[in-house]
Design a binder for these strands. Sequence first.
RNA 1: GGGCCCAUAGCUCAGCCGGUAGAGCAGCGGCCUUUUAAGCCGUUGGUCGCGAGUUCAAAUCUCGCUGGGCUCACCA
Length: 517
Amino acid sequence: MIETSENTLIDQRLEKLQKLREVDGAAYPNDFRVTESIATVRARGIGPDGEQLSNEALEAAAIQVSVAGRAMAVNSFGKAAFIRVRDRSDTMQVYVKKDEVDEMSFTRFKLLDIGDIVGVEGELFVTRTGELSVKAKSFRILSKSQRPLPEKFHGLQDAEMRQRMRYVDMIVNDDSREVFRTRTRIIKYIRDYLDQRDFIEVETPMMHPILGGANARPFVTHHNTLDVDLYLRIAPELYLKRLVVGGFDRVYEMNRNFRNEGFSNRHNPEFTMIELYQAYATYLDLMDMTEDLFQSMARDILGKTVVQFRGHDIDLGKPFRRLPVCEGLREYADAPEQAFHDGRAAYEWGLKHRIDRKAADIVMKKYQDSRDPNAQRNCALEICMMVFEETVEQHLIQPTFVTDFPAAISPLSRRKDSDPTLVDRFELYVATNEFGNAFSELNDPQDQEERFRAQMVAKAAGDQETMEYDEDYIRALQYALPPTAGEGIGIDRLAMLMTGSDSIRDVILFPMLRPEK
RNA sequence: GGGCCCAUAGCUCAGCCGGUAGAGCAGCGGCCUUUUAAGCCGUUGGUCGCGAGUUCAAAUCUCGCUGGGCUCACCA
């Protein structure tokens, strides 16, 4: 092994560890009792009037405290030193003074490295510069850090190392810790919000024998005993609706989905999604609830409703715009009216807007082979959606509910009463990104059978991302699914929005990376 | 998968019209018993991502490879 500088630094620390073993017995003791967090210790230095107590008052009170945490910085004077100690709640300065601690404690302090986990017992006091600190009476090293930490001022910058060694990122980058705390608050907020509204949380299978609930390419795995291939789920939707049939009228699941697709700053192969279902509600009810959820969450977690995201000031405080697909196309893409009815007209108009010709050809073929009287209209609308993605999405900066999607691309949604080629569905867009997808659920089993068959036709025509025919799901619908609305919200993207993160990798603790070496 | 960019000390970064490697932080030694990115003096530490090529000479120029970032495509 080549002698590198890093090894030298590690060796020096290992030597200190060895000395610690010799002078102190156990190098990794586990008998130091911490009864309070640093935040609560700090609170004890605050008087009843909310002001920090004076040094005289503190000395008179002789408040005994014990704190434990990671030593983040040391200012040493030889015979005295200040050590910045951090635990989960806060940081606290510790003063180790040769005259004030026992001899063993001072010996231990001499073996301290930045990054070590320490335990301190002492009294509260205020330094000359006014900082509440702990004057150590005893000082211990509870766990030695054998590796040097990144630089204290710039932290760890390299994006790959921050993701591969998230533990180091979290030690040295305050904002990284804060992002993940916010993520956790978001998840808790949603749980509380739904629990208050009488929803119950469930866990449905992650391994699916049949692909369904979304259009995406799956990961495939294999069960040895059953000797069957299984898909890691791309969505929990069909299981959750089975539960509504079963009587769980308000149900949700917030957990991972897996999609075997590319990476981007908004896509990770495994990502967290909430899906919720509410019986006797419509997609319009969910729109209202979603708006309220986003607004109240921002207020609760951020204390404001305007957030900076992808270079925009996103205002979550105003009512979200509601934009039907066709209206968006008229506004942003000069859609000719016949494009909404006639497949060929849509096709020609679409090509002008640079939709993918191959995908469009598949749509045209699918409907040329069909005898459905609505075929022309469905075909036209499916192509309209392609144009929508090319032309309208980029304008959707402020929160916008896009509504009235084509039935042809919504195999699980209820048709609109006013127009059977459209469905009662919305997607929420913020800063041109999709944040949620919701619809009134299709609960007519005959219609659902037809939709599944249409998916199979699409697959035969060349579409690689179709749902599979799920007979048991049809059987469940035959037992009667109440009128129900359901919604999925991407939690990672929501965390990006609430933390102002540009990349999904900044809000996932351990994003997927190529394996090391 | 295409295009552009990046890879130098443990970390953050200079050096890049070729001449044999620098700073700050961290570390080590010394001074310092109230510091706040402490200070002062001294000092260790590098296969310049990997592999070829051009050249008397490559961190620097060329090509390939690996890993990463941004972006487009695919995709929600």
